[in-house]
Each structure stands twice: as C-alpha cells, then as structure tokens.
Design a protein around this nucleic acid. Structure first.
Lengths: 333, 333
DNA sequence: ATGATTTACGAAAGCGATTTCGTAAAAAGT
DNA sequence: ACTTTTTACGAAATCGCTTTCGTAAATCAT
C-alpha cells in the first residue's frame, strides 16, 4: 500500500496525492475529498523513510544520554524530564528516538554520525558525569540541540536546567532561619556540572550569612549511590565532630546519611539536621521525611520541547534558561 | 556526503561500496580496504531512511505504552524493564522509537499504522490498564511483538511477565510461616491483567493453606496512587476489624496503608503486618522497611530483547515466558 | 593452449515519497 | 470574442541506498 496505489485508486497522479498529504493549495476540492476518503478507507499512511529521504526531515528527535554514569532511564529526575518532554514534543508532531549506547557503530559515542544516520531534526542531550568530545561535536554541529543539566554551547544549541545556585541558596537560608549555624556538605568527589554549581553556591551562601566553612564538614561521596553516601557519612561520624546540619547534594546521598545516622543511633534532626536535593519519590517515605528541593521536572521537559521546536522550525536560538525550584519542607530539619 | 561521493572518491561504483557496507563476498580485498579507509576518514555513515526504503528494515523497535493509566516512563517497574531492554536490544543492533501518544495521527491510537509508517522491525508493548483494540490489531499483525505484563496473542506475538501467581503464593506462604492466619488484601477496583492474577492466586493460596477469605478484609483502591490506597485503608480501619496481615498488590498502595496506619497510631507489623509487591526503590526507606517481592526487571527486559530478536530474525515464535521473582524480607511482617 | 569456472566489479531498476515546472481548461478581464 | 490570468493537475527528476544480473578478466582444469 503506497502512494501509487492510492493515486491509481483515485484516478489521479502520485503528485496530486502527495500534494493533498502536504496541504498544497493547487488541488481541487472534490479531488481532495475523494483522495482523502480513499486514504481513510485503506488506512494508508505515507512511509516515513521515503518522506525523510525526499525531504531530509524525519520528525524524529534524538535522545542522547551523555556519559555512562548516573545518566539513563533509571535516573529519577531525568526520566521525569524525558516523560514531560515526550508529551510536549509529541503534541508538536515529533517522536523520540533513543540511541542505544551499544550498537554496531564502531565509535560507540559518535552521536553526530548517528544523528545524521537517522536524520533526526533535533536532539535532547541529557547530562552525564562527563561531557564526552562526541557530545561537544554534536552540540557544535548544525543539528539543533538542547541540553538538560549540561551547559553546551554551539551555534545551534542551548541548555536548560534548574537554577541550582538558587537551590543551594534556598537551602542554606532555610537552615539558617531554623537556627542552624554549623552546616556541612555531602558532595561528590568528581565534582562537575550541576553538582559543582550546588557546592559553589553553597559555599557562597555560607559566606553571605557569615557562617563558617569548616573543611572537616565538607565530605565527599565517590559516586551517586546511596551506599557511597553512607560510607562517606560513616567517615564523618567516626571523626567525632558533626555539624548541626548537613546538605546532601542529592536525595540518594541523603538516604545514605540517614542510614549511617541510624546505625549509630543518632537522630535526625535532633543530632543533626539533614536536607537533600531533587525530591525524588522516596523522600516522603523516609523517617523522618526528607526536607529537600523539588526540581520542576515537568516545566523543564515542557520548555525543552518548546525551545527545541523553535530552534528547529523558526531558526531562532533561545538563550539558556534556568527553571525555579521549590523548597519542600518536611521533617528532617 | 553520500554513497556516490564515497564511490567516486574510491574510484569504484556505488554498487561496490554498498556491497562493502553489507559484507558481500564478491569484492576484492584491496578494494575493500581502500573503500573502508575512505569511509573511516570521511566519517561517512549510510542514511538510514534510504536504507530502510530499499530494504524495508529499519533496525528500529517501537515502544508502545498501551492504555493511558499507570503506563509510561514514570512507572517504576516498566522504566527498569525498558532500560534493560534498551541495553540488550542495542547490543543486537537496534535503536528504540518511542511513540508519542499525541501526534498528528488522527486516530491517535492506531499503533499499527504508526509501526508501518516507521517500518519498525518489531515492537515491545507495555501493559496499560486496558487493552485497546488498536493494540490487539498490532499484535495480530505481521509485525513481531512482545508484550510486557500483557497477554496478547497473535500470529507473531508473545509475552513475558513475572510469575504473578507465584508471587502471591510466595507472599501468602511467607505470612503463613510467620504465623499470620487472618490475611487481607488491598486490590484495585478495576481488576485486570497482572493485578487480577495476583488477586486470584492470593485467594487460591489462602484456600490451600486452609485460611479464611473474609470479604471485609478484601478492600480495593480506585487506582494505583498511594493516596487511593490510603483512603481504602482508612475505610478498613474505621470499620473496626483489622486482619493480622495484609497484602497490598503494589508497593505504592502499601505506602498508602502505612500512612493510614500511622495516622491512627497503629503499628506495623505489631498491629497489622504488611507486604507489598514490586520492590520499588522506596521500599527500603520506609519505616518499617517494606517486605515485598522483587520483580526481576533486568531479566524481563533482557529476555524480551532476546526473544524479540529471534522473532524478527529467525522467524521463530517463542512461547510466553514467566520470570521468577524474589521475596525480599524486610521488617513489615 | 583451450575451454570451464571463479572472481571482481558495474549498470540499472527499484524502494516511496517530494517538488519543480509545464500545460490544458476554466474563469476573468476587456 | 479574444486575450490574460487563475486553477487543477501530471510528467519526470530526485533523494541515497540495495540488489539482480551481466560481463570482462583472472584462475583453474585437462
């Protein structure tokens, strides 16, 4: 069932059918109706590959998970962003192509080549632990790209993320208002991207409030796993000196802190207050429920779709956008 | 940069280049090397749409979320299955095409038409609350399909799910062994799919152990939300009679039970034991940590990829597979 | 050395759309 | 009534790749 069949069924040429499909004006009304009806009856849908071949537009958006650590569909925040993005971009007529990280391509990470291979119209790049050169290549190319939690620049790309500096500031302010003066941080060893922003803003906020920055209260986890947070916190506890409050740069890490505290029969928030970051589902189920900052994943995903659409179709290049987050006060501080 | 460019650069015909790309045997070794080198240097990758058009194979697998309720990337179990599936299918040379639920297609749910449009080589269908006619059409078509948590039959489709009957049996057995004799159930009102299997098996297991099935201990939530579980449990509590233990058919529902219990100052497991199902992340963070059954999402995803691959490439139609799950004993019973 | 077979390659016809450009018929202008 | 403009449509080239089939040259058998 192809365009030729439809054409001969309707007694017109393929050109006319094509014009009807693409809303050209130079086709008579009754012909249009007749062909439309036949297409409806036969359930005909034009082949996307033929269309793509002819037009060089695929109506496909590539989804790239940069890096390998902490960046795939298992990531609690990114999956929500993607989901919101998918909804909005679908409304705009696009479908999503998820690149597998392990295909037949020799240079597994040659995203640009893969984008060209599929002729995606645009890309959404999800932050990973590191920014591979291949991701930079992609961003610098002529393919419209929008980065999530990853600052990429290129002629045709921009990015979108939560205002992480503000997140850290909000947290410090909240702790300060609650009377905490000795505030520690549980960060990540290989500091980069949003985590780095959070830590930097954290330090600055402490300064703003005239609070001390004590190196022994700045601890680091080797990675994003709860268990690593747990181990880092064990170290701090055995050092003997606890701050009054602690900011864990992600919720999972905060859970690790909770575990360590519990094991040592230390109470939250009495012995040490705790605040996490991201507001993943589990936050409300812990004891105590975790005070944290909720990233507006819905807005991020939606905006990303809208911005990318504009980049593709209106050749306008939106500037980077920061999305506000919301402090969720629970009982951990 | 297309195959013609490569051909002229190498001083051969496009046919020869194509043969090299596709590992044909009738091409000389030195020619092969020369062309290969040029392809490498120029970073040439064949266009997928042209290839798809010519071969009618796209190396794309369609991802269909059937139904609208409780079935998208936000679903804690499905997202893990998809992630595992994506890894394995990637290894086999396929990428994933996520169909948006809201595109320009008139009949939004005409999955078969969309599969043909993109010429996907196969499909993975993720269970939803209801099985739409369009999903049935797809399954009945000539496109290889594999269903997750959804029993579909068609000439070219099969399915894969956890052994939900066994899950329920395991749970009842565990509760029995721990001495509980009065066991209730928190189910879903619109009973279908795996939830129905769980409930049916639950009832049968009670019978096997000679335990009573008391209708007042069988309660139902209107949907999958924690809050709905919470409300259902509130109803049970206010009725005055609690079973000794309760099986909530999903973890989220169990969390709702916990919330209701807490509000009424009832303790778990002392006043009533509780067991959930699925082992989502949050289970280990609740107080008490929730005893539950872990679905082997990794295995499900991996097997689904392997089976689908066989269906596509070896024309063999695997039989439906049940995957074993593991009881995770924590402190809620 | 001659015929048979194998090897290495290319010409050309698809695959299913889009799009430009040309043209007959109809409508409008005078 | 005749020219001009508009409307409605089609022929054919094109997009980038695959695949069949034909053939010249090289290799083999005798």
């Amino acid at each position: 069932m192809n365009i030729k069949t439809i054409a001969s069924m309707a007694g017109v040429s393929v050109a006319t059918v094509s014009k009807i499909i693409n809303n050209y004006s130079d086709v008579g009304e009754e012909t249009r109706q007749r062909v439309l009806r036949i297409m409806e009856e036969t359930g005909y849908k034009p082949s996307s590959s033929a269309k793509t071949l002819a037009t060089k537009k695929s109506n496909l958006i590539g989804v790239v998970f940069a890096g390998k650590l902490n960046s795939d569909l298992n990531h609690p925040i990114f999956v929500k962003v993607i989901n919101a993005f998918k909804k909005q971009i679908g409304l705009l007529g696009y479908d999503l192509l998820f690149f597998s990280n392990e295909t037949f391509f020799q240079s597994k990470e040659d995203y640009l080549a893969r984008c060209r291979h599929f002729q995606v119209d645009g890309c959404i790049i999800i932050a990973g632990d590191i920014i591979e050169p291949s991701v930079v290549n992609l961003a610098r190319s002529d393919i419209p790209c929008i980065g999530i939690d990853i600052e990429i620049d290129g002629v045709n790309s921009t990015y979108l993320m939560s205002d992480n500096a503000n997140i850290a500031a909000k947290i410090v302010e909240h702790l300060y208002m609650r009377g905490y003066r000795e505030i520690g941080l549980l960060g990540i060893e290989r500091n980069s991207g949003v985590i780095l922003i959070r830590e930097t803003a954290f330090r600055e906020s402490l300064k703003t409030f005239g609070l001390p920055i004590r190196p022994e209260w700045i601890i680091r986890s080797v990675d994003y796993a709860r268990d690593s947070g747990y181990r880092a916190m064990k170290g701090l506890i055995s050092s003997g000196s606890l701050p009054q409050a602690m900011f864990a740069v992600t919720d999972h890490l905060a859970f690790g802190v909770m575990q360590a505290m519990k094991e040592h029969h230390l109470r939250i928030p009495q012995d040490m207050a705790l605040v996490g970051c991201d507001d993943i589902d589990a936050c409300k189920y812990t004891v105590p429920p975790l005070t944290t900052v909720r990233q507006d994943t819905d807005k991020i995903g939606r905006l990303a779709a809208l911005m990318l659409f504009d980049m593709i179709n209106k050749q306008i290049n939106p500037t980077a956008v920061m999305v506000e987050s919301e402090l969720i006060v629970r009982e951990s501080c």
